[in-house]
Design a protein around this nucleic acid. Structure first.
Lengths: 337, 337
DNA sequence: TTGCGCACTGCCAGCGCTGTCAAATATGGC
DNA sequence: GCCATATTTGACAGCGCTGGCAGTGCGCAA
């Protein structure tokens, strides 16, 4: 197919005047190669722009230098940052990252992933939510002894490698911010059950209310599906309540944006009559008007830390927790009287 | 590394009672295998959940069943849809898609891509804007005879495979929509020079103005960088003009959202005092308030068509053009008098 | 001088498949 | 029933590398 085809390790070795095994040693940074030889080989490699065949290394060696990233999240923003965070770190460490969207609800999840592993000889796997919660998959990976790391795991938090932020604490901070502004009827639009963070954020919200002696009112919690449309619908429901909330805490920015649109639609001033807060600090948070008060979730850094954990074998601590940050913007303000 | 390691083609053949070459034939859907034998082999393959090693097939055969997707676009929305569109089609056709972010401005672009090709034995490449415009890369790919397809190419539109929409016509339609609402002073926020579509959209805008006998005013064209912040800044500049425009056509939705935020900031009613339109119909278009009038760009379908073109060798027409659609929403309205 | 350890290098098998070609078996025509 | 031809199957090399191991040459202690 190629007109001019790639050089092979043997051609490099011929030109450098050494055995092809020696070239292999240089490429893999093994010791027991004299400085002189190494220099000569490297010079030829650079001149020919030689790159060893990934397929051949995988087949011959015990490592494939490939890691998979599994995701099943409809938010382009989230996916994008998970991808770039993980990819950067993997590239730096000399690994290739295989980006693999997958249906985490499919009954074939486990066999699909095993097929991927067998096909590509993956060295490890990075799981992002909600794939992180597929316990059948985790069991099978454990059984196989295939290393994996989870980003923001909800279940089995104490097992295995993971990189996460503290959703409960973050939700408490956000709730505290609203309470501090004088709000007492604070509603919550909670996200998908399949995402463990939804429950954590709800828990943080409840805990903070209780800490301030505010009774938890189940009528103020409405479920939605992590997207704009369902967030808008949930807000409609909340605003139709006889005793309307003065603030809405949405489980993510997409739902918060939906709630904001509902407020605009109903000519309710934000934050004058209603405060709205989101979670994630996605691009959306700054793009809507007024810009959203939200929690900055370090998605990029979480993914990067996950890659580090699984590749930098030296990992002393199997669990990394990164800092979130409350971003106060114009969508929240003092409670109306 | 694996506790229980993958089965190989030889084990499958032993169980099925045939030579491993016959199993290979079944896996590759070759003819000259009796129905009876095929059935028996397939049954064993399914039972063992056997998947042929990608590395071995690549090494032994002349195809790698891998296609690369190169991108260098900061918009998560665009990337996400390009990825999913291409990936779906590739998966259906039995290919693996390698998602590869890359710096299209780097002086090492060509050698980086060649390294990727050599390492992975890529069968073909899908280029998305602005990588599509890297002529040095195109030349090198041509020289190598490596098949590639471009999504929305700006240069060399008549060469090679490509999938695109008509940016000029779309921009004309959007401009006509604004003119039809009575607008005469219509500003344009143009996007990055490195994206060929920016120039096409500007050209469409100019052409439609001229078709309606409206003089083109260079003062009404401001450059920005395809993102929210630069769009907001550009709008500030436009609204500071003594003879302020009554409508702003932004080269993409991100910049339009920025312009919208600027309007909100300055307490300018949209669309009462100012109409704003975007381009792309990204998630953002529906998430902001008021929702943006924009052009729906079939990103997913373009990527899918590109994958089809490069893999479905049967492609009779090397160039595919897909339909866009004018989405009229609430951000545009009659010109104020 | 001999012997031994160590740093360096080369040889070869083999990873799990596909391509090629030859062998075995089935099919058809007369 | 026999040969020519088509269909089905198998044997084997080899893709481009790594892993294991067997050298080779040199310095240094005995």
């Amino acid at each position: 197919m190629h007109v001019s085809s790639r050089p092979t390790i043997k051609e490099v070795s011929k030109i450098a005047g050494v055995s092809f095994k020696t070239v292999s040693r240089v490429l893999n940074n093994e010791k027991h190669v004299s400085e002189e030889t190494r220099r000569r080989v490297e010079e030829v490699v650079a001149r020919l722009n030689f790159r060893p065949s990934h397929a051949a290394r995988t087949l011959a060696g015990r490592k494939s230098f490939q890691v998979g990233l599994l995701y099943d999240n409809p938010s382009p923003y989230y996916i994008y940052h998970v991808q770039t965070g993980a990819q950067q770190r993997c590239t730096e460490l000399g690994y290739r990252l295989l980006l693999q969207p997958i249906d985490s609800q499919s009954p074939d999840l486990v066999s699909n992933v095993l097929a991927l592993i067998d096909e590509t000889h993956l060295d490890g796997l990075i799981l992002s939510p909600p794939v992180t919660e597929a316990t059948a998959l985790l069991d099978e990976l454990d059984r196989r002894g295939l290393p994996y790391v989870r980003i923001a795991p909800g279940t089995r938090k104490d097992a295995g490698l993971s990189a996460s932020m503290d959703d409960v604490v973050a939700a408490r901070e956000l709730t505290a911010h609203l309470i501090g502004l004088g709000h007492r009827r604070i509603a919550m639009i909670r996200g998908l059950e399949s995402h463990a963070s939804s429950a954590d954020r709800l828990a943080g919200y409840r805990a903070e209310l209780e800490a301030h002696g505010i009774a938890f009112d189940p009528a103020l919690v409405v479920a939605a599906e992590n997207d704009f449309a369902s967030g808008a619908a949930a807000a409609r429901e909340l605003l139709a309540l006889k005793d309307r909330p003065t603030a809405i805490f949405a489980g993510n920015d997409d739902m918060a944006a939906g709630a904001l649109a509902t407020a605009h639609e109903s000519d309710i001033d934000v934050p004058g009559q209603l405060s709205i807060a989101g979670f994630d600090d996605s691009d959306l948070a700054r793009a809507v008007w007024p810009p959203l008060t939200t929690i900055r979730q370090p998605v990029h850094e979480l993914a990067s830390a996950a890659a580090e954990l699984i590749l930098g074998g030296a990992a002393p601590q199997p669990r990394v927790t990164l800092e979130h940050k409350l971003m106060v913007r114009a969508s929240t303000g003092p409670a109306p009287r």
